[in-house]
Design a protein around this nucleic acid. Structure first.
Length: 714
DNA sequence: AATATCCGTATTTTT
DNA sequence: TACGGATATT
């Protein structure tokens, strides 16, 4: 968008707005502007929708209609004549982003679907695709997913000679976590290590060396990780020349989930503001649950200080839940040491009290949940109006089995590690080098896929790919690793001839420049012979993996170009089991299983929270300091406030401690400490069986004696 | 030099 | 379960 029209447009808006606010508010109420639904808003929400200043902070309690408010504000901005592409909607999570964009599109305004929006990472990615040269990246630059990051760090770690046997040098995963924290929270390495990874403090210098090497390698390969996306976007926005042009593309920036943004994201918002955009931030400090990713509630607390003349509007009226559910939520809220005062008041009629259901063990818990789900459905609550929420993906394992046995259909959000499957990584690598021939991480993976090629030959081949081998001086234009490979200038053992032939054929078919390349889905189809060949040599279940190829091809079909597909696969991978299962059937009724993190922003008539025991909620991984514990408390708060009509919290007294299932390590759990403040507001249901109700078939002594002596005699 | 096999270990949440 | 690391085998 040319900047001159942007300036003109802003001037027009300014003129139109100058004498309008009071009249508009009046009009809005008296003439009922149904187009933007102002008459459905309460006074605070309406004030937020109509706000005219440059900076607005909406502190929105759970269920207070913040999305509706944001969407109404967008409608009102469009109604004022703001071109849709000059409105930017930012969120932290993908779910919030898709929900907000969906509701904006549902406004039915013609131009609403042209509103720009997405997660911070997705918008950063789209921006960098257009500005790659300006930040020194190749146009086909690759986005590394966390698995790639760990792989690359592992390579650097080995090259640096660190992590020799017995040296107890931190694992690549740990180093990746440390580096991620440094980037996301913008904290110095030494501080991060001392405060969060104290057991690594003797290795700070080594970790620094590895991370420096890691960053150099990323640069050399033309790749970025998730954190780099934000850092580079920020750098562009803060650049003296690029910044104004880039930021000038937007008149209004609206940020949801502001409590979950990190320091870099806050800088991005501030830069957009400084260059002239009006900024609306919405959030709830009581729902801040991404501290582990470097998010800080300081962003929301300090916004009024950071941006001049910020108007603060608080939404406290809750439209979602019954008074009984809110009584529990408020009790939990009061137990938070330093939350904003934000007592939620219900506008809904009274309903049943939340229940705390105590079961003997995980199996009983799974059964109790299944029965509760079926019971609710009998009473007319469809499965898709119910959700089961848990702290970590594997907490639902037993329940998934139980639901399967009872033929209860479900979709699971979170915990799906599709991208971690080896064959998906293989396919990604094979596509990646077409866009970015310098992506050595991808090359390494491809080379090792070939039979008879291991670490040694892969390294030699990589040198040839780089053009470092002997007699490789000739450099016709476009002489890059891909060219060298296609021309057979990389010597590989004869055992790879068939595979290399299949690969070259597929690549030659796919490589077409820009417009002439076949669609991404077709490119994946073309790789089928190669994949079939290498996977059947490597995996028992090659047919299953090949059928994943079909699903990936379908997924790719939704994208116009290979790089768009690859970007989406990395930044926006399938999150639910249904994402992969082809087009959804609208009439399908299925229960929702979700991690609490993935459930944020969602709401269901009946919510079943499971594993409410100490060690799970709060997670025993998160008890190292007070901040982590408080974050777990807020997580539980998020879980409770998802419920509209009914809330059931399940407590299994005996459960497997995170660990190898076959070890059968279980422990007796205490009900979650977060339940203590809720005793007054919940109803306790004890479903444990008295010991005498379990028939004793054998005495332990008899059974063990018989087995042991039997074995010894035999 | 690559591959097969075994053992021990660690293991959240998301972009 | 799944992955890394070490050792044994081809």
């Amino acid at each position: 968008m040319p900047s001159s029209s942007a300036v003109v447009h802003r001037a027009e808006v300014a003129l139109a707005v100058a004498d309008a606010p009071a009249r508009r508010a009046e009009q809005a109420v008296t003439t009922g502007r149904s187009r933007i639904g102002l008459e459905d808003l309460n006074p605070e929400q309406r004030r937020a929708a109509l706000h005219d200043g440059r900076s607005l902070l909406v502190v929105a309690g759970a269920g207070s209609g913040k999305t509706r408010t944001l969407v109404s504000r967008v409608a009102r901005l469009l109604d004022d004549g703001t071109p849709p592409e000059r409105i930017l909607l930012l969120t932290f999570t993908r779910r919030a982003s898709s929900e907000m964009l969906r509701r904006v599109r549902a406004l039915g305004l013609d131009d609403a679907r042209r509103v720009t929006g997405g997660t911070f990472h997705a918008v950063a990615h789209a921006t960098l695709r257009r500005q790659a040269r300006a930040v020194g990246l190749p146009p086909g630059f690759t986005v590394l997913d966390p698995g790639d990051v760990t792989d690359l760090i592992s390579i650097v770690r080995t090259e640096e000679g660190l992590g020799e046997r017995g040296s107890r040098f931190p694992r690549a995963r740990t180093i990746a976590e440390i580096g991620g924290r440094v980037s996301a929270a913008q904290e110095p390495l030494s501080e991060v290590v001392l405060e969060r990874f104290p057991w690594c403090r003797e290795h700070v210098d080594g970790v620094r060396t590895v991370l420096q090497g890691f960053h150099q390698r990323k640069r050399a390969m033309g790749v970025v990780d998730f954190d780099d996306l934000l850092l580079l976007w920020r750098a562009l926005l803060q650049h003296a020349e690029a910044g104004p042009a880039l930021a000038g593309a937007f008149d209004h920036v609206l940020v949801d989930e502001f409590q979950d943004t990190n320091a870099v994201q806050a800088d991005i918002v501030a830069a957009l503001h400084r260059h002239g955009a009006s900024v609306t931030c919405v959030g709830d400090d009581a729902q801040a649950i991404y501290g582990f990713r470097g998010a800080t509630v300081e962003n929301i607390r300090m916004l009024p200080t950071r941006l001049p003349e910020t108007e603060v509007i608080t939404l406290h009226r809750n439209y979602r839940s019954t008074p009984e559910i809110l009584a529990s939520a408020n009790a939990l809220l009061r137990s938070m040491p330093d939350a904003f005062e934000k007592e939620l008041t219900s506008v809904r009629p009274t309903g049943p009290s939340p229940q705390v259901v105590i079961s003997d063990d995980e199996g009983d818990q799974a059964e109790a949940i299944s029965l509760a789900v079926l019971d609710a459905r009998e009473r007319g609550v469809a499965l898709k109006e119910q959700a089961v929420l848990f702290r970590t993906g594997h907490h639902a394992d037993l329940l998934e089995v139980e639901l399967g046995l009872r033929d209860i259909p479900f979709v699971k959000f979170g915990g799906l590690k599709f991208l971690d499957r080896a064959h998906v990584k293989d396919l990604r690598a094979v596509l990646r080098v077409l866009d970015n021939p310098g992506d050595e991480l991808a090359w390494d993976r491809i080379l090792r896929l070939l039979p008879g090629v291991g670490p040694g030959r892969a390294r030699a081949a990589m040198e040839a790919l780089r053009g470092e081998g002997p007699a490789q001086q000739d450099g016709p234009s476009g002489d890059d690793p891909l060219r060298r490979f296609l021309d057979g200038r990389v010597s590989l053992p004869a055992s790879t001839d068939v595979e290399v032939g299949l690969l070259v054929a597929a690549w030659a078919f796919s490589a077409g420049d820009d417009g002439r390349a076949p669609e991404p889905g077709v490119q994946i189809d073309a790789l089928r012979p190669f994949c079939a060949r290498v996977w059947s040599a490597l995996h028992e279940d090659a047919p299953a993996r090949l059928s994943d190829l079909d699903q990936l091809a379908t997924l790719a079909g939704r994208h116009g170009t290979r790089s768009a597909f690859l970007g989406a696969l990395t930044l926006d991978p399938p999150v639910s089991t249904s994402d992969l299962a082809g087009p959804p059937h609208l009439d399908d009724d299925h229960l929702v299983l979700s991690t609490i993190h993935s459930a944020k922003g969602g709401e269901w008539k009946h919510v079943h929270v499971m594993h409410a025991v100490d060690g799970a909620i709060p997670s025993d991984m998160a008890l190292r300091n007070r901040d982590e514990l408080e974050e777990e408390r807020r997580l539980f708060y998020v879980a409770l406030t998802r419920a509209r009509d009914e809330l059931t919290v399940h407590v299994p007294l005996r459960f497997h401690h995170d660990g190898p299932k076959h070890h059968d390590r279980h422990s007796y759990a205490q009900p979650s400490r977060f339940l203590a403040p809720l005793t007054e507001t919940t109803q306790r249901v004890d479903q444990t069986r008295p010991a005498e109700a379990v028939p004793r078939l054998l005495s332990a002594r008899t059974a063990i004696d018989d087995l042991v002596t039997g074995l010894l005699d035999g």
